[in-house]
Amino acid sequence: MTEQKRILVKGNEAVGMGAIRAGCLYYFGYPITPQNEIPEFMSRELPRHDGEFVQAESELASINMVLGASAVGVRSMTSSSSPGISLMQEGLSYLAGQELPAVVINVVRCGPGLGGIATSQGDYFQAVKGGGHGDYRVITLAPASVQEMYDHTILAFDLADRYRNPTMVLADAVLGQMQEPIFEHGDVPPEPRKHWTLTGAANRPARHLKSLYLKEGELEAHNRMLQEKYREIQKHEVRFEEYDVDDAQLVVAAFGTSARIARTAVSRAREKGLKVGLFRPVTVFPFPGMRLCSLSERVKKFLVVEMNTGQMVEDVRLNVKGDTEVEFYGRPGGAIPTPVEVLTQIERHY
């Protein structure tokens, strides 16, 4: 195999590159910092690929344009940042209810309200607990590098299509704005055949895509079917990464940019002779709870590090064995925990 060339790109551009590689030629979005490079990239590139770029009038419109494109069977996406993602929650609920695949990129910034444009992980609850109404789940990937911004965008399209479910890439402002070298690769799973799309009922009975079920028992059955699907996703799609957990007495658990920061802190702790490891959920829904549970059989303590005031830590606490200690360190929107801070916390709790 010839050595592939690395290219230096911004996280947001890597998303655009991954999307086009995954065959997504339909993008709908609305400007918001710090994700503007995604629509800007798509507005530049999609016309060259015979695709469509629409700058929607709002994020409400963006997500519903994606809903429409998805219904006719094409791969489409939208991207935004926290306040815009809040506006999309209604659409996400409809996508989930109608079982429509869609990819949504959230380059998370600070909240609540208009907050600020600095990085944050304050949208974890919104992403994995469902920000919209009803019993539904959004498959949620948490990249931690520019390469993963590319890879996860491709993976998101695959998962969305396979499970007919909205899939979110939960990034953050650091990942969106940072530049790192990446390999562009062609590992794209084949797009599944879609037997449910609305393409005209000329030679077949008419199809309907809906989430309204009025007949007795119908809605409950629909909801039970959705839950069965989410269980399948939990069974097959859990992804995580571990560093130095084998002999670790304390394991730091973090996702996304926090995991990168924690990684440096963990290496420094190891240099000091502390037996510390790092556990990084790559999927945050489905959450790698089983693995955490088995780790907790021998790990004494977990330290959860987040760029918020404590969201994923709740899932960690739910999954570890009862008497395992779970500590938390986080900085809310407007501040980034640094490796030195995390190391201090490691030493404090070790």
């Binding site: 444009i117 704005q177 790192e180 940019t257 990168r260 490796p339």
Partner: peptide
Amino acid sequence: TFFPSYGVEMRGGTARCTVVMSDNEIGSPI
């Protein structure tokens, strides 16, 4: 890794960036 200041941060007139170089995997870009 290259992490720049961006957006309204820059309108105050300050620009900053961090560059980390390593022959190993890079942890924190911060």
